[in-house]
Design a protein around this nucleic acid. Structure first.
Lengths: 224, 224
DNA sequence: CCCACGCTTCGGCCGCGGCCGAAGCGTACC
DNA sequence: GGTACGCTTCGGCCGCGGCCGAAGCGTGGG
């Protein structure tokens, strides 16, 4: 048994609007309190508490108690990847492009964080450039940084940290439907871009803005 | 709104045990009838019919009516990827890793039958060679055999039989996640390979073994 | 020490949705 | 034409699970 049971119970956890909203709110990798998540999901604190307990129990979230607050965050990059994969299918499903473009929707598509790396048009563009220059090679479910790529990253100040996490892998971008860079390499690039002030987080959103320094920097470095 | 709603409704579709079982049954890329899927999900035909209608409505499945049967299959590779991503998280949750790659798993990935054609690494390799040599052209949901391809197939002794079945189409390979050849052309090639004694079926399994004659024959004919 | 606050647990309400029996529609085969 | 079969639709039953009010527990601060 029961690969099938596992699939169903895990998917059912994401199938509730309140829990889905909470996971979305955590998609940028930050840690939020139970109350903040209750607000994000539009439910009362006690309802949220129940949902959070179930998500934590299933290891989709990890929790850290601190004083009288409890901070929840996604348990692993795999969870973020799963959510993005579902979004990719869900957005494909959507019949008409739905022109409404609610406040910030366009910004989300331009550039956003996906757990700890960059997604949206910017993320895809960066991946494209690196592939074009043969700094990385992406396959269906893995990727490698070439010799020249490693040199480039070091020069950029984004040498990926050593660790057991997967080095470099593609992550399907739900808005662009093309892969962007995830893994340690994607995280290092995103981190460096924040460090250089090329991009900044927008309030209450996973969207990020590209600063004017970012526009020139990205043009110089990546040709974007 | 409602990226979050989309996420929830799509996930909810996978969150039901019966629907999850159906999707799992389709993960190898084959097309199954409503009745077969009802059996796989352990529900009555009328219950299955309802589930299949919802999955099709949401574009997770595509359906092809043929005579008095209706064949369901995954609508796109993205759906398969989504299911795999969820399985990745679900299995991560599971405490004990439980024996990886059960007996014969590797053989299944090397070469297996997919209805009446060849899948696995061998199936994908054959498709790749034929595309590379411009003997076939594959599109998202169909395919054509070129002039030179037809000559090649006839010379190989695998002239596809006439009939109303779809001539040539790609079939997503579950283990390789890339298309292999299905349809009458795929069937003819597989049939000829069995005929030449290049491959033989293994007992109680969809896996096939490549014989020594097969190794040299495949190298000569397809350059594999 | 007491209160404010964040979070959780408990209990009960209620609606959504899965399930199957029965019936209807269309195709295939004799 | 008749029959068998695959599939779908309809209707009604029923249980799971989401929701909130009230109450309980622990921490921090005045």
């Amino acid at each position: 048994m029961s690969d099938v049971t596992d699939l169903a119970v895990t998917a059912a956890l994401l199938g509730d609007p309140a829990r889905a909203a909470m996971l979305q709110a955590l998609m940028d990798g930050r840690a939020l309190t139970a109350k903040e998540l209750a607000f994000a999901a539009h439910v009362s604190p006690q309802t949220a508490s129940g949902h959070l307990a179930r998500l934590t129990e299933a290891s989709l979230l990890s929790v850290a108690a601190q004083g009288r607050h409890r901070y929840f965050r996604l348990a692993s990059p795999a969870v973020a990847e799963m959510v993005e994969a579902i979004m990719a299918v869900a957005s494909q499903t959507r019949p008409e492009p739905r022109r409404t473009a609610w406040k910030g929707g366009e910004a989300l598509r331009t550039a956003r964080t996906c757990y700890d790396h960059i997604a949206g048009r910017l993320g895809v563009a960066i991946a494209d450039r690196l592939i074009e220059r043969e700094h990385v090679v992406l396959t269906a479910d893995g990727g490698e940084v070439t010799e020249s790529g490693l040199g480039f990253l070091v020069g950029f100040g984004a040498a990926p940290e050593p660790g057991k996490r997967i080095f470099c892998r593609p992550c399907l971008d739900w808005s662009e439907r093309r892969p962007h860079l995830a893994g340690r390499v994607g995280a290092a690039i995103a981190c460096r871009c924040f460090e250089l002030g090329w991009i900044t987080r927008l309030r209450d959103s996973r969207a990020v803005a590209i600063t004017s320094a970012g526009h020139s920097g990205l043009a110089d470095t990546f040709g974007i």
